[in-house]
Computed example of a mutant assay.
Amino acid sequence: MFRKILIANRGEIALRVLRACRDLGVPAVVAYSEADRDSLAVRLADEAVCVGPPAAAKSYNDIPAIISAALVTGCDALHPGYGFLAENAYLAEICDKVGIVFIGPRPEVIEQMGDKARARHLMREAGVPLLPGTPGTVDSLGEARQAARRIGYPVLIKAVAGGGGRGMRVARDDSELTRLLPLAQAEAESAFGNGGVYLEKFLDRPRHVEVQILADHHGHILAVGERDCSLQRRHQKVVEEAPAPGLPRRTRESLFRAASRGAKAARYTSAGTMEFLLDRDGQFYF
């Protein structure tokens, strides 16, 4: 069991982690920005430490500040919650180097799954269903056109890094691809520092279903349930419903098996989510 855990997040997320620490009898330190000094999580914490000014870039996303807070308060583990630095491989790597347990996947796993092109390759090797698409990034308009004609329009241009709809465009023909490809690349470069994009078949109004998994360091993986996240605005989830309504039992079981195979192939550990799209015929894709 850990001696003390730093919670590197705020709001409802920090409260959930804090409650789990209380249930386990583990002291917790809440990291906060100056804007959150009087938040409920700070007031309920065993200890709290300020990590910077209100701007997230100078507090919750400031890796030196977060690591320093953990070391100064004597924490031997760090829980990033979700969002902010939760998917930052560099933070996980630094934690490892300074002797702090990062409560989450290994840094190499975060890096691997954070690159959508690499993740698609890994899932293909594991036998997880994929939408037709390019095996890696497309480096030129000519290559993109050839790939789009092979896949079949409409196609989705997607950034290999990041998410949230940035670096993403739907092209329905060659002319739209010519116009939208450089826009997607520029947006991806601006948002993620990586302008790489790939193409995949565009699904019109699919269901977005996520499978929650738990994995230990011995290769044991458990799919514990699924949720429907189809109601979105600008590619951001508005409502998540669990269990996913109207999902046939066989489809749910197949999703669980695919999620477990994918997580095992990635050597995933800790809690995580495998995301799938379901078409109107009930076929699902990673």
Score class of each variant (00 low, 15 high):
A65V: 05
T251A: 06
D279G: 03
P129L: 05
A35I: 13
L222G: 00
A14C: 06
Q236M: 13
Q112C: 04
C229V: 10
S254Q: 15
L40I: 15
P154K: 14
A263D: 00
L177M: 06
G104M: 08
R43A: 09
V49Q: 11
M274I: 14
H235R: 15
A159M: 10
A184P: 00
R16M: 06
G99V: 11
A242P: 00
G282S: 02
P182I: 03
L278Y: 05
G165M: 03
G114M: 07
A223N: 08
A41F: 04
D216M: 10
I103R: 09
G195A: 10
R150C: 07
R257L: 13
L44M: 14
E200C: 05
L15M: 15
G262Q: 04
A171Q: 11
F284T: 03
Y32F: 15
G262K: 11
S39A: 14
G219I: 11
A188E: 02
V72W: 07
L181N: 02
C50F: 12
A69N: 06
C95E: 04
P132G: 07
I67V: 15
L255F: 11
Y32W: 14
S254W: 07
A8I: 08
A242N: 01
Q185L: 01
G163Y: 09
Q146T: 11
E12T: 06
R250I: 06
A271G: 02
V51C: 06
L277A: 01
F284W: 04
A223F: 05
G272F: 06
G133T: 08
P132S: 13
G136V: 04
D174S: 04
E200F: 04
K4S: 01
S39C: 09
F276G: 00
D38H: 15
R19H: 14
D38A: 14
L278V: 13
A171W: 05
D23E: 15
A57S: 09
L131T: 09
I7C: 05
G52P: 09
E241W: 12
Q146F: 01
L91T: 02
G152N: 12
K237L: 05
L44W: 12
L180F: 15
I66K: 14
I67D: 02
A35V: 13
G164M: 13
Y82C: 06
R252G: 00
G74K: 14
A188M: 05
V224N: 00
R118Q: 10
I103A: 10
A223S: 09
R257G: 06
K116A: 09
M1V: 04
S260P: 00
S270L: 01
K201F: 00
A266N: 03
A126Q: 07
A186F: 05
L91K: 05
V238E: 02
T178K: 12
F256W: 11
L183W: 14
I63A: 09
L278F: 06
A259R: 12
S140L: 08
D23R: 14
H217F: 01
G81E: 04
A263R: 03
G225E: 07
R250Q: 13
A126G: 02
A86K: 12
A184Y: 03
G193Y: 09
A215H: 10
E275W: 11
Y198N: 06
A70I: 11
V109I: 13
L180V: 11
Y198W: 11
A119Q: 01
